[in-house]
Structures are given as C-alpha cells and as structure tokens.
C-alpha cells in the first residue's frame, strides 16, 4: 500500500514554544486516519505544515509523494481542507464561497455540490455575515466534499454541527472512503472517530505517542476484570501486567494489560470461578490514558 502522508521527525518552534517535537505520522492511501491529541498537542500545527502554510524547522514530510512546502500549489489541486473555525466574507453568499474554493482546487462536481447542499440543508444564498457557526462550517464542508480531490484534511470539521448533521457528515466521509479517497480527520468526538477511522495516531506535546488500528490500541491497554471465586485468590498481585488489585473476601477486581490477560484468567481458574465479567477498555479510557499528563508516559 502506498502512503498518502509520511511525516518523520518533524520539529517546529514558535519563539520558545516547541509546537512539534519530532512528530511522526503515516497515513495509508485510501484510509480514514484519526488524528487525536489533547488541546495544544500540535495537531493543527502539523496540519498547517502539511498544507504548506507553515514551514517546519527540521524533519521530513511528504504528501501524495511530494513536498508540502515547495509543491504546495500543485498539491492543493488534489487536497481539500476544512478548518475547525470557518470565517466567511461578510458580503459574499455561501454559494459564491463554495464555487470560489471549487475553482481554487481541482474543480467542483456540480451534481455532488447540489446533493451536499441538500443533505446538509444549507441555504447557499445567504450572505457570510448571517450564517451561524454550524452553517459556516457547512459551507466549508460542502466546498471540500464536492471537490474532486485525492486527500481530505479535516481539522475538527464537525464543531458546531448538530447531531443530525454529524450523521450526514459521517455518511459523506464513508462515501469518500468508498471512492478510494484518503481522509486525515482530527477530532475530539470519540464516537465519530470510532465509527469512521481505520487507524488513529495519538499525539501529545508535539510527539506521536501511539499509532495503529483501534483494535491494536485496545490491545495495548488494560482490561478490567471482576470475578467471584470459589476459593481464595492466590498470587494475583505477582503476575506481570496486573494493576489495582482489590480483594474483598472471595470477590476480586483488577486491571490487567490486555496482552497479559491469559495468565490472570489461568490463575483465577485455579481458584475456581463462580462469575466473571471482563470489559475491554472504553474509547474514553483509552484516550484519557494517553491524554493524561504523566501516567501515560510510564506505560
């Protein structure tokens, strides 16, 4: 599989602030890639570097096989971008703006434009100053999704959209994937990420801390186990990868690294199991673990 985006060891400083500190990122062609991280982690800075809006201090980056800074204009024919905060011109209509962006990219699919306007329930005749936050977002989304491009870069694209419109957005992204387009999606809406993304990269303080499919990431984190045993539990605390063991009589609660689950279950079976519940980590737990300041680093 070819890579749509490859980034290696990217550094970018603004004065004394190190926004990017050796960031790596790999996005396969045709996948929807989630780009996650707490506020200020460097997501938008990375995206701006990828768009050739910022120039990295060091490191390497390639989009669709080309240099994002030097080949910016040619690349942008094949890229559509939606920022999280769209500003429009006060005296230009939404329709005018959509067509402007279409012309400034590889062109606009008229039928798709009409279809998207209808699905997003956007009134393209209103002037920029009269749109609400969500409707400004729709203008940028329609312009991007109706463009004939290979790569979509979406930076919190659904901020301000109602749940209904978020649903429309999801089905649109799925259609894009079906057409073989690549999507880089930065988002804080975890259900959206779970529903759409083939793989995710989690960054913190300008570095990539985790990258892989959601299943992979789940595998790397802890499963919580609670059991009621026949006999007394034995030697659980000494098993590798076991944390937070809480024994009350014959009831046991514990957390275990998912790849060490086998040994724990064997130990529990030795004591005889009356009941057992085991729950994989929720997405929230997964992210909190990576977002939280210190704990995550000492994995």
């Amino acid at each position: 599989m070819t890579k749509a985006i490859t980034v290696a060891g990217l550094h970018k400083s603004f004065g004394r602030t190190h926004a990017l500190d050796g960031l790596d990122l790999a996005v396969e062609t045709g996948e929807v890639h989630g780009f996650l991280g707490p506020n200020g982690a460097g997501k938008s800075t990375t995206i701006r570097v990828l768009l050739g809006l910022l120039r990295a201090d060091s490191g390497a980056a390639q989009l669709l096989g080309r240099d994002p800074w030097n080949d910016a204009v040619e690349l942008h024919r094949r890229i559509a971008y939606v920022p999280g905060d769209v500003t429009l011109w006060r005296n230009l209509s939404g329709g005018e703006v959509i067509d402007l962006y279409g012309r400034l990219r590889g062109g606009l699919d008229k039928a798709r434009r009409a279809d998207l306007i209808e699905r997003f329930e956007l009134d393209p005749t209103k002037k920029g100053r009269t749109y609400s936050k969500g409707n400004r977002q729709k203008v940028a989304l329609v312009a991007a999704l109706a463009s004939d491009v290979d790569l979509l870069i979406l930076d919190e694209p659904t901020s301000g959209l109602d749940p209904l419109m978020e649903g429309v957005f999801r089905s649109c992204v799925e259609e894009e994937r079906d057409r073989g387009r690549t999507v880089l999606l930065s988002s804080h809406v975890l259900s959206e990420v779970e529903a759409l993304c083939d793989r995710v990269s989690i960054i913190r303080k300008g570095r990539t801390v985790e990258s892989g499919s959601l299943a992979d990431l789940r595998h790397l984190t802890r499963t919580s186990v609670s059991a009621e045993l026949v006999g007394a539990p034995n030697g659980l605390t000494h098993l590798p990868g076991v944390h937070d063991v809480d024994v009350q009589g014959r009831r046991v609660k514990l957390q275990v690294d998912t790849d060490k689950l086998d040994a724990v279950l064997r130990s529990l079976t030795e004591s005889g199991i009356r009941s057992l519940t085991s729950s994989p980590p929720t997405l929230e737990e997964l992210f909190l673990r990576h977002y939280a300041p210190e704990e995550a680093m000492s994995r």
Binding site: R48, L53, E74, H76, R77, Y81, P83, T87, Y101
Partner: peptide, 12 residues
C-alpha cells in the same frame, strides 16, 4: 483566518 482556507487551495 480566511487566508488559511484560501491558501490551502491552489493559491501561491
């Protein structure tokens, strides 16, 4: 912030 969106299109 409008320039950001414009420059993400084919604008030198």
């Amino acid at each position: 912030g409008r320039q950001e969106l414009l420059s993400a299109a084919m604008v030198g």
